[in-house]
Amino acid sequence: MPPAPDSDSRSDDEVLAATDVAMLLRYGLTQDALRTALFGDGAVAAAVTLDRLGVLPRSLTFLAEIVRSGGLAYAAGLPEPLPAPEPAERLRDWLTGAAQTATTPEAEIRAARWLDAVAEIIALRRSVRR
């Protein structure tokens, strides 16, 4: 059987960058069935996307602390959740969707842990590239 079109021409990064992180974040914080996907492929996809946009891991770690302190809705409402406009807009979209469904303290703690995981993955990616 011949390979699927473009299966050999797309890198893992390209496939992951096409992942619907917003959907995984929105539902993975509250549904056990999607939690593994959120912290697995979803975290890696977010890391690939944000790394390509130049986001520093410490920015996400700081934002995770804001989520822990003020909640998802508060973090999503920040005028600049990240220093640069393009990644800030992308992350704001993700957080806004998640804030609509993740209304419990447990879900918000998971969101902060997820942001920390994304930061760690970005840091690992950068250390491997050096």
Rank of each mutant, 00 (worst) to 15 (best):
P3C: 03
A4Q: 12
A4V: 15
D12F: 02
D12H: 07
D13G: 13
D13E: 15
V15N: 01
L16P: 00
A18H: 02
V21I: 06
M23E: 09
D32E: 14
R35M: 13
R35Y: 05
R35V: 04
L38K: 03
L38D: 11
L38Q: 07
L38H: 05
A43Q: 07
A43W: 03
A43V: 06
V44S: 11
A46K: 05
T49R: 15
L50P: 00
R52T: 08
L60P: 00
T61G: 03
F62N: 10
E65M: 07
I66Y: 00
V67A: 11
S69Y: 09
S69A: 15
G71D: 04
L72N: 02
L78V: 06
P79Y: 03
L82I: 08
A84V: 10
P85E: 14
E89D: 08
R90Q: 14
D93S: 05
A98S: 08
T103L: 08
T103E: 13
T104H: 11
R110L: 15
V118R: 02
V118Q: 00
E120H: 09
E120G: 09
I121S: 10
A123D: 15
A123I: 01
R125H: 15
R125N: 12
R126Q: 12
R126G: 02
R126H: 02
S127L: 13
V128Y: 09
